Amino acid sequence: MLPATCGNGDNGGIGLARPDPLLSRSMYSRLPSTYELLEALAAAPAPAPVPASVSRDSATSWAQRSGRGLWLGFVITLAATLLAAAGLAIWRLVLKHPLPPWSIRLAEALLVLSAACYAGAGLMRLPGVLAIVRNPLRWQASQMDLDSAIENSLLRRLGRIHPLQLQARQRRVALQLRLWEGMARTVGLLLALAPAALVLVSGLHPLPLQAEMKGSLLWLYAVMVVVGAAFYLYVHVQCSRPLRRLLHVLGEAAEINARLGARRTGPAPSTEPAPAQ
């Protein structure tokens, strides 16, 4: 057996490094990529077994299938309506041909059909919306339980990853989160301020046909504000919120693994020599 210290050479009096059993065991565990972790957070867990006394499964599944079908029909008919309207505009404004009456009736029928599909999809979702309105706390608790089940599954998956790896990934995710949120705020602010800048420029330097452009400027300002708010909301829902959840899960996993590793390894043995008898 080699002693803990060596008196010869450059390492005289320096204790030998003791390998960390947690580090040597967990460094072989691969930390999944960030996209895999985000997919794990977005995946729904397996549904719990439903008691046999519940008899509304067929009605609920039928309502869900009908709602999805009506929503798909709304998307298809809306796309067809937009294509038909674009074709009519090109036929009338670009090609300078008169519009046949049946084409206008077709566009109107597609528009009515898309509105009917949208209203039907809303009616199919109405019982769920009413249940949420009647008892919002129960809906919120069920959503929290679902998120907790997903996060607990990911925590078990990250159980053999070293805390230093988790903390490093957590810092990278925090950096990406700041970049996404800064970009969303910047783009939203620019979209909201661009029409205001145009109004300011028109006040300093009058534009041609400025009197006729007041209504157009107001519409442009409203559209740009709505587009900026929609873009910020989209980035928040699709990017910022998943990254925040992943940041929270990585922090919890690092803390849990660090505490379990400290409990497993125990206090480091002392290297001081025993007192002489």
Rank of each mutant, 00 (worst) to 15 (best):
L31T: 01
P32C: 06
S33L: 14
S33F: 04
T34N: 01
E36C: 11
L37Q: 04
L38Q: 05
E39N: 04
L41P: 02
A42V: 11
A42L: 09
A46G: 11
A46T: 15
V50S: 03
P51D: 03
A52R: 06
S53M: 10
V54H: 11
S55G: 08
S55P: 09
R56C: 15
D57W: 04
S58Q: 15
S58N: 15
A63L: 15
A63R: 07
Q64C: 10
R65G: 06
S66A: 15
G67E: 14
R68V: 08
G69W: 11
L70R: 04
W71R: 03
L72N: 12
L72E: 08
G73A: 09
F74G: 06
F74A: 07
V75T: 14
V75Q: 13
I76P: 00
T77Y: 12
A79S: 14
A79R: 05
T81D: 10
L82E: 09
L82Y: 06
A84T: 15
G87R: 06
L88Q: 02
L88H: 00
L88N: 02
R92N: 05
R92G: 05
V94M: 07
V94S: 06
K96A: 09
H97E: 11
L99H: 05
P100I: 13
P100T: 00
I104R: 07
I104D: 01
I104N: 03
A109F: 13
L110Y: 07
A116K: 10
A121I: 02
L123S: 13
M124P: 03
R125P: 04
R125K: 08
L126D: 12
P127M: 03
G128E: 11
G128N: 15
G128L: 13
L130Y: 00
